[in-house]
């Protein structure tokens, strides 16, 4: 039955941040598997900050999944936006969960795909750039 979620999770589930698609993304990746119930897509736009470092200028997501999947997608994009790519690569599952006021244990492994999605998007961008 519905798991007990924190207030913060419910907030991000009800009103997710950075939700939607992006027309001219620098990288687009999909993670997860519909078989497990969760599928996430991230759209990444890269910019340059005043120090000349590459940063996440914009980040959007689309997620088919449970409450935790949507809330973690929202929180991951929130945490990553504005960060340099190197910093964003370091965003962990634990950090996302902590910012959400904790997640039910079972959700940590099955619905927490957002960190992976974010890293994959950055990798994808770098790969394309170095081609």
């Amino acid at each position: 039955m519905p798991l007990k979620y924190s207030k913060k999770v419910l907030e991000h589930f009800t009103r997710p941040h950075n939700q939607g698609s992006m027309k001219k993304a620098d990288a687009t990746v999909t993670v997860g598997n519909p078989k497990c119930g969760d599928l996430m897509r991230f759209y990444l736009k890269v910019g340059i900050n005043t120090k000349g470092q590459e940063i996440i200028k914009d980040l959007k997501f689309e997620t088919l999944g449970c409450g935790a999947a949507i809330a973690t997608s929202s929180m991951a994009t929130e945490l990553a936006k504005g960060k340099t790519l190197d910093e964003a690569m370091k965003i962990s599952k634990d950090q996302i969960a902590k910012e959400l006021g904790g997640l039910p244990k079972v959700k940590m492994h099955c619905s927490m795909l957002a960190d992976e999605g974010l890293r994959r998007a950055i990798e994808e961008y770098r790969k394309a750039k170095n081609k």
């Binding site: 997710p16 939607g20 999909t30 519909p34 599928l39 897509r41 689309e62 088919l64």
Partner: peptide, 8 residues
Amino acid sequence: ISGGVLKD
């Protein structure tokens, strides 16, 4: 929220 993620 899910967009066309499954279809794609």
